[in-house]
Each structure stands twice: as C-alpha cells, then as structure tokens.
Amino acid sequence: QVATSTVRILGMTCQSCVKSIEDRISNLKGIISMKVSLEQGSATVKYVPSVVCLQQVCHQIGDMGFEASIAE
C-alpha cells in the first residue's frame, strides 16, 4: 500500500537545498518518490506507511537544518 502526503519545509533558499533534501529523503527505505517545491515551501512524498512514517521524514529534514512539518 502506497500513500501520498505533503510536508511543509521552512528554510529552503535555493535549488541546492531542494536537491539535498530530495537526495537524502529518496534514499530512505520505504520512500518511493519525493518532489520538493522551493516556491511552495513543501514536498510531496510518496511512501509505504508500513515501512516509513512521515515523522521520520520530517526528522531527517530537521537534521539537515530545515523546519519540516506534516501539512494538514
């Protein structure tokens, strides 16, 4: 089973930030795809909930120095 959710990301300033986040999160087990939008300050994450949760994704992004939260 696959889920798609949006994560809000604060602190991104350039495409390099976007690429860094996409590269790191895409390597997590259970992540199918991730598309980060600098303009919208968010990311669309396609993932397998039984393998990885959005809290883990937000935590990983937080470790990179950005502020991440699950969009309502």
Rank of each mutant, 00 (worst) to 15 (best):
K46M: 12
V45Q: 02
G65L: 04
I9D: 03
C58I: 15
Q55M: 12
E39P: 08
G62M: 15
L38T: 01
L10A: 10
E72T: 12
C14G: 05
C53I: 08
A68C: 15
S20R: 15
I21P: 03
M64A: 05
V51T: 05
E67R: 13
V51P: 00
H59A: 14
Q55D: 09
T13G: 03
T13K: 12
T13A: 05
P49G: 04
Q55H: 13
V2H: 08
S16H: 12
S69M: 12
Q1S: 10
V18F: 03
H59I: 15
L54N: 01
V48K: 10
Q15W: 09
G30A: 02
S5D: 09
A3Q: 10
M34R: 00
V57T: 01
S50N: 08
Q15N: 10
N27I: 12
I31H: 03
D23C: 06
K35S: 09
T13F: 15
V7S: 00
I25S: 01
Y47M: 01
R24L: 06
G11S: 04
I32D: 00
C53Y: 07
K19L: 08
N27C: 06
H59G: 13
H59D: 15
Q60Y: 14
K35D: 07
D63I: 13
M64C: 03
M12H: 00
A68M: 06
S20E: 15
E72W: 09
V45C: 05
S16T: 13
G62Y: 12
A71T: 10
S5V: 12
S26D: 02
V7N: 01
V2A: 07
I21W: 04
D63H: 13
S42D: 07
V36N: 00
V52P: 00
Q56L: 09
Q55I: 13
S5T: 07
D23W: 09
D23I: 10
S20N: 14
V51F: 07
V18L: 05
V48M: 14
T4Q: 08
G65W: 04
E22V: 09
P49A: 07
V2T: 12
F66N: 01
T6F: 13
P49E: 06
G62V: 14
M12F: 04
K29E: 12
R24K: 13
C14Q: 02
I61P: 01
Q1K: 13
E39K: 08
F66M: 03
Q56E: 15
V36Q: 00
Q40T: 13
G65S: 02
M64E: 01
L38N: 00
V7Q: 00
Q15H: 10
M34H: 01
S37L: 06
E67D: 10
G65D: 02
I21G: 02
I9G: 00
K29P: 13
A3D: 07
S33T: 07
F66P: 02
V48H: 15
Q55A: 11
S50A: 11
K46C: 12
I31D: 00
I70K: 03
N27S: 14
L10N: 10
M12R: 00
S69F: 14
T4E: 10
L10F: 15
I31R: 00
Q15S: 11
S33E: 10
S5Y: 06
E67K: 14
S33H: 08
A68K: 01
E67M: 12
H59C: 06
A43D: 05
M64D: 01
T4H: 07
Y47T: 00
S26G: 14
H59Y: 15
S26C: 07
S26W: 05
G11Y: 06
S5R: 12
I9N: 00
P49I: 07
K35L: 07
T44E: 11
P49V: 07
V36W: 03
V52Q: 04
E72G: 12
E67A: 12
V2C: 14
F66E: 02
V52N: 01
K19E: 11
E67H: 12
T44C: 13
K46W: 09
C14T: 06
A71Q: 14
L28C: 04
M12T: 01
Q56P: 01
E39G: 07
A71N: 13
S50H: 10
F66A: 03
K29Q: 11
V2P: 07
Q60T: 14
S42F: 10
K19P: 01
T13L: 10
I70P: 09
D23Y: 09
Q55S: 11
L38H: 03
G65K: 01
I70N: 05
I32E: 02
Y47A: 00
L54Q: 01
V45D: 01
C14P: 01
K29Y: 12
L54T: 01
K35H: 11
R8K: 11
R24Y: 07
C14H: 04
M64Y: 03
V7A: 01
S42M: 15
V57F: 03
A3P: 01
D23L: 10
Y47N: 01
V48I: 14
S37P: 00
I21V: 05
S37A: 06
I70G: 04
R24N: 09
I31K: 00
V51D: 07
A68G: 03
G41I: 05
I61S: 02
A71W: 14
V2S: 09
S69A: 08
I32C: 05
F66Y: 13
M12E: 00
M34G: 01
I25K: 00
Y47V: 02
E67I: 14
M64Q: 02
L54P: 07
E22H: 08
T4G: 02
V18G: 06
C14A: 03
E72V: 11
K29I: 10
Q1C: 15
T6G: 06
C17I: 05
N27R: 14
S33R: 07
T4V: 12
V52E: 01
Q60N: 09
E39M: 11
K29M: 11
K19G: 05
A3Y: 12
S20Y: 06
V7D: 04
N27P: 10
V51I: 13
V51Y: 06
Q1N: 10
C53V: 08
V57D: 00
S50I: 05
V57P: 01
G41C: 09
P49K: 07
V48P: 00
V57E: 03
S20L: 15
I32W: 05
G62A: 15
K29T: 10
M64W: 03
V2E: 08
Q15Y: 13
M12V: 03
I32M: 07
I61G: 04
I61E: 02
L38M: 06
Q15P: 09
S42E: 12
C17Y: 04
Q60L: 15
M64P: 03
E39W: 08
V45F: 06
V2F: 11
T6M: 14
A68N: 03
V48D: 15
G11D: 02
S37R: 08
S26M: 13
L54A: 04
D63G: 08
G30F: 06
L28E: 03
S33L: 08
K46D: 06
G30S: 03
Q60K: 09
M64H: 01
Q15F: 10
I25D: 01
L28D: 00
F66V: 02
S42H: 09
M34S: 02
Q60I: 15
T4I: 13
V36C: 08
V18K: 08
R24W: 05
S5G: 15
Q56A: 12
S20D: 14
Q1G: 11
I31T: 00
G65N: 03
V36D: 00
A68Y: 05
L10V: 13
Y47C: 04
D63A: 14
M64T: 01
I25T: 03
V7H: 00
G65I: 04
V57I: 15
V52G: 02
L10G: 10
L28F: 06
L54Y: 03
R24F: 06
G30R: 04
G41W: 07
G65A: 02
G62F: 10
G62C: 11
K35Q: 10
E39N: 09
G11F: 06
A3S: 13
C14M: 04
